[in-house]
């Protein structure tokens, strides 16, 4: 049914209904937001895992990762052996004023040295302070949550599949030998 002023009535109805409902405002500084799993707040670094392969710095679309390193020689452990060389990380810094939170560095790291932490309260008064050096990046590691549980029916994690296959493989040759 339509009558003159129906639209006007509807407008009043919508606003009145809204008023009787709870507002959707997030009271952020008073109440912390409930972040979804895998939130990209800040990038954390496990320095011990880093081999200075430079993949992250090279893949970064914004060029916001700075890495300095030098080579260390590890003296040979056996008599007449060759000295080995090892990369040592001197500086690892991420400039979060440039970072666009694309997550490429986290995904590209072959040694799981980079992780996402959901912490987001690291605003600074000076833009230069947004460059987090490796000590600070290491500290963020304490805030990285455990990986979320997989969805029911989801494919198993790649690492587990690989490990299971490797275990199977190491068990099979024994059977093969037995047959022959």
């Amino acid at each position: 049914m339509s009558f003159p002023g129906k639209g006007l009535m509807k407008g009043l109805g919508v606003t009145m209904r809204n008023m009787t409902r709870r507002s959707v405002t997030a009271h952020y500084p008073d109440a912390m937001p409930e972040l979804p799993p895998r939130s990209r707040g800040v990038i954390a670094l496990i320095e011990e895992n880093c081999t200075v392969c430079m993949l992250c710095a090279r893949e970064c679309p914004a060029w916001c990762i700075y890495i300095d390193s030098h080579k260390d020689t590890v003296p040979a452990t056996t008599e007449g052996g060759k000295d080995k060389s090892r990369n040592v990380l001197d500086r690892f810094a991420i400039d979060f004023s440039i970072c666009m939170y694309c997550s490429i560095c986290v995904e590209v790291c072959p040694f799981d040295a980079l992780h996402w932490s959901p912490e987001f309260e690291y605003s600074e008064l000076d833009i230069r302070d947004l460059t987090h050096e490796k000590e600070r990046l290491r500290d963020w590691m304490w805030t990285v949550p455990a990986p979320v549980a997989l969805d029911p029916g989801a494919e198993q994690a790649k690492e587990i599949t690989t490990a299971e296959k490797a275990a199977e493989k190491s068990a099979r040759p024994a059977e093969g030998e037995g047959d022959a």
Binding site: T15, M16, N18, M19, R21, S23, V24, T25, H27
Partner: peptide, 13 residues
């Protein structure tokens, strides 16, 4: 306050 709640906000707090 009324306007804020009609717009699903909370207004001054």
């Amino acid at each position: 306050k009324a306007m804020a709640h009609m717009q699903a906000r909370v207004g001054p707090m």
